[in-house]
Design a protein around this nucleic acid. Structure first.
Lengths: 324, 324
DNA sequence: CTGAAAGCGCTTACAG
DNA sequence: CTGAAAGCGCTTACAG
């Protein structure tokens, strides 16, 4: 069933059917009604592939995430899909699994699909791939979310620096002098910013930075678990853990070794129902995923319409259950 | 940049360029090489929209989930995306949020997009909408996963009945006579099957079914929390909880009311790292999400190629850390 | 208010 | 091994 068939049944031209399909004004009410009835009767759904080709438009946005099972990113995906639906956009989803080559494949696929634009949380080791991404951005609008790269291409991130500084200072105000830090992979901007913020917070408060208190992991539960055991060997009384998965690993180690839940003041970036359920005393932030996704879709629209826009948008997390 | 431009630059016809693009054999090696070089130089990516239209093919599969933030479904999405990638398929994702109307919108959208097929975990209240789905299936191949409907349309589910019976019997073998049951919304097949299996297991073991021990929730953490308090009023010594979110709510109530983690023998359907971390004594199953998604994509292929296939595939969960 | 015709960027028999 | 031409199912100036 195609537009031609409907036209034949209605005794009109395909042009007129097309007008009805696209809610154009210039159609006599009676013919509109007749055509609508026939469409309904026949259960006809216009072919968007053809429509997109001829109108040179596309309502599909490509989204690439490094790890969908991590609830941090599944929240992004969920909010993205919901906000897209409200704006009449569709999401085609890629999962890079932190693998640059897979990420590249998805980007190329999305270019071939002529999607409206690409919204991406890049894999580790993407930070310095400026040339690659700038080449891509000449082909297609691309927006970086959550994780930035070394370039002034359009980016929407959560504010990491001040957020982390305040979290560390909160630990200091609680009386902690020895604060351990569990880092993610430093080739990811969020991990790197949080570590830098930690250093800054210590400096601001005249606490000497101690390399022995900083532990390098990879944002996984396993690495949180492994590093926890290293933390236990130190005289740290508090610990900042760079993401929610590492926290789970840390808490698991605490529990296994019979430590008390409150042996350490713990702080992290993202408030998470489940983590907080396990230990309600963790200092964290409510992360506005809805705002992130909504603004990234709006930004895409602005770029496409060549409206003015800010190249770099920061979204402020909100303190959860604590204040300094 | 389009195929015509490449053809012009190479001094050949668009047909020949198309042949090179599609790795057709019948092209002289030297012209193939030349064309490939030009494509590379120009950074040309063929327009798949046009390709799909003219070849009447589409490598995109529409996937609709009821709730992506629930890790059970984000695991399905993740495995689907990864398996699709291996098969050269792309996933366009819809989230129905357990809302039938939104689900319908996505189905219609996917029909318009002329996707290869739709793979769907239906919303609650879909079970009896047989007529609606059968009408859809005349338009487009549709496969039901995880949750089934009242029809013999292609379906791939996890085995719920025997799985739940064995879990209940395990609780019985542990010496429990009073086993509470927290149910999900009974308009969802998985919830309904698990409740029926509970009844069957009791009957098999000559334990009287007691309506006071069955509690009706909606698969959410909140309902697990609320119902837990009802369970505490009974003399139940064990509880089967129908999904992982309700378990979290149950455990939260346990903790808040100062109950001991082991006051109840707890069993559930899906093994989950996080839940198990909170309470490692929960009896559950490893759920083969990889197999589910892989087989559903294979099934789609079979349906399209009109090969023989089983209308109803059951995938067996595997006992985790326990045996009767 | 309506329609004929060209065009979107590809593929694909068909002919050579 | 190569190309001219028709076709995929729509949209869209243009003319009336």
């Amino acid at each position: 069933m195609k537009i031609k068939d409907i036209a034949k049944l209605a005794g009109v031209s395909t042009t007129t059917v097309s007008r009805v399909l696209n809610e154009s004004k210039n159609v006599k009410e009676s013919t509109r009604k007749k055509i609508k009835e026939i469409i309904e009767e026949q259960g006809y759904y216009p072919n968007m592939i053809a429509k997109n080709l001829s109108s040179n438009k596309n309502d599909t946005v490509g989204v690439i995430m490094p790890d969908i099972e991590n609830v941090y990113f599944s929240k992004i995906v969920n909010n993205m899909v919901i906000n897209a639906e409200k704006k009449g956009l569709n999401i085609i989803l890629g999962c890079s699994d932190e693998n640059f080559e897979i990420q590249k494949k998805y980007i190329e696929l999305f270019i071939k699909q002529r999607v409206k634009g690409i919204i991406i949380a890049v894999t580790k080791n993407s930070y310095n791939k400026t040339e690659f991404f700038e080449k891509i951005s000449k082909k297609i609008p691309i927006i970086f979310i959550d994780r930035k790269i070394d370039s002034d291409m359009p980016t929407i991130c959560f504010e990491n620096t001040d957020t982390t500084i305040r979290a560390i200072e909160n630990l200091i105000h609680k009386g902690n002098k020895k604060i351990a830090f569990l880092s993610g992979d430093l080739s990811i901007s969020t991990a790197e910013e949080r570590l830098e913020a930690y250093k800054k917070a210590l400096k601001n408060n005249h606490i000497k930075y101690d390399v022995k208190l900083v532990f390098y992991g990879d944002f996984s539960m396993e690495s949180g678990y492994v590093l926890a055991k290293e933390v236990f060997k130190t005289d740290a009384t508090a610990v900042y853990i760079s993401n929610n998965l590492m926290i789970l690993g840390f808490l698991k180690a605490l529990k296994e070794l019979g430590k008390n839940e409150n042996d350490y003041n713990i702080s992290t970036f993202e408030y998470n129902d489940i983590v907080n359920f396990i230990n309600k005393d963790i200092y964290s932030y409510h992360i506005p995923f809805d705002e992130l996704t909504n603004k990234s879709l709006d930004l895409l629209e602005k770029i496409i319409n060549k409206e003015k826009y800010n190249k770099f948008l920061k979204i402020k997390p909100i303190k959860k259950h604590w204040k300094i």
